[in-house]
């Protein structure tokens, strides 16, 4: 076997030695990188370039040669508003409704998720009974497919679902949770928090466990109250992890699509339509397929994501440097 491998290595060695001779040792690295670069170029870089090109073209045709060049026309359509705080005054009101929905969704979802994840992590870090069991319970929704999460909650909240059966059983009036704009939005945030909280809890728990015990012992000897210990020791020492969690959840939240789409379809009306759904429906699900407008919207969204990613990189470096 060893001889066989050695023989194979010799076969490979011949062209590699030739290449090394021709290119020199420093350029040989590119030969090793070439397969990956080709794959990256074909499946990542080329689509990004195409996206920019499509964003500057109009028509419902797919092939570029059948499309017309419109320059910044699609961006102008998306950003022409008399009053940016009033979607009704915008040329593409559905885009701005999606922008506002995404803004509030991110704000509420990230806020509640980080808050609840912190509380849960603190609870799971304390000496409670069946701690391992509870850690599994909180992490379990993370393992579920977003569509499964959406369907479970849809069954619970639909007109004749479990939630209304419970309300009826207790003698209350039933509520059409998914037909009311505000309730539908609330539940979209809620299920998203429920589904993803376990992951961030786990990260925060790791952060909590990395805090040296002797600091707490010193605080205890100084008779510091639990709240003061949390405010003066836990929170500052956990802050680097918190920032990472915050930025990661922000990026993930801006990208939310599948579970909310399967849960409400973006309705009622456009009350839960988020930006990714707007892009999907404009470019692929609607008729005609407005690839240019969808590409332009996706580029605007990408700008936001790049800013958030830079923030994450900055936070990570700050974390590493202490």
């Amino acid at each position: 076997m060893a001889r066989m491998i050695s023989y194979c290595m010799r076969i490979i060695e011949i062209p590699m030695l030739y290449l090394q001779k021709r290119l020199g040792i420093s350029r040989l690295a590119w030969v090793f990188l070439l397969p990956n670069l080709l794959l990256f170029g074909l499946f990542a870089f080329l689509p990004v370039v195409l996206n920019f090109v499509y964003a500057m073209t109009g028509s419902d045709q797919i092939l570029l040669q059948d499309r017309t060049f419109v320059g910044m026309g699609n961006y102008q359509t998306l950003t022409s508003c008399e009053d940016f705080l009033n979607p009704n005054s915008c040329k593409d009101d559905l885009f701005w409704r999606a922008v506002y929905n995404t803004f509030w969704f991110v704000l509420l979802q990230v806020g509640f998720m980080v808050g609840f994840a912190l509380l849960t992590a603190l609870m799971l870090n304390s000496k409670i009974r069946a701690r391992g069991f509870f850690r599994s319970v909180f992490f379990f929704p993370v393992l579920l497919s977003p569509v499964v999460v959406a369907l479970i909650w849809k069954w619970i909240l639909q007109r004749e679902g479990l939630a209304n059966a419970a309300l009826e059983g207790m003698g209350f009036d039933t509520i059409n949770w998914l037909l009311d704009r505000h309730w539908a939005f609330f539940w979209s945030v809620f299920i998203s928090v429920w589904a993803h909280m376990g992951f961030y809890t786990l990260i925060l728990l790791a952060g909590l466990q990395a805090i040296p015990r002797d600091v707490y012992e010193a605080a205890s000897m100084d008779a510091a109250s639990p709240f003061r210990t949390f405010r003066r020791i836990t929170l500052p020492l956990l802050m680097p992890t918190m920032i990472v969690v915050l930025v990661l959840s922000l990026i993930k939240s801006v990208q939310t699509f599948d579970e909310v789409y399967a849960f409400t379809g973006g309705g009622p009306g456009s009350a839960t339509t988020l930006l990714i759904q707007y892009v999907y429906e404009t470019g692929f699900a609607g008729t005609p397929r407005l690839f240019g407008l969808a590409s332009a919207a996706s580029i605007l969204l990408a700008v936001v994501l790049v800013i958030l990613t830079c923030l994450q990189l900055w936070a990570s470096r700050r974390n590493v440097n202490g």
């Binding site: 419902d60 009704n88 037909l179 704009r181 009306g269």
Partner: peptide, 28 residues
């Protein structure tokens, strides 16, 4: 129906949407 737009606004939007759609499909 859900109250995001009045009927008048909805009809205005529908007219504008159709104009935009026609502009897209005819720009070949």
């Amino acid at each position: 129906i859900v109250g995001e737009l009045s009927i008048e606004e909805a009809m205005e939007r529908a007219t504008a949407d159709l104009e935009q759609t026609m502009a897209e499909v005819e720009s070949k």
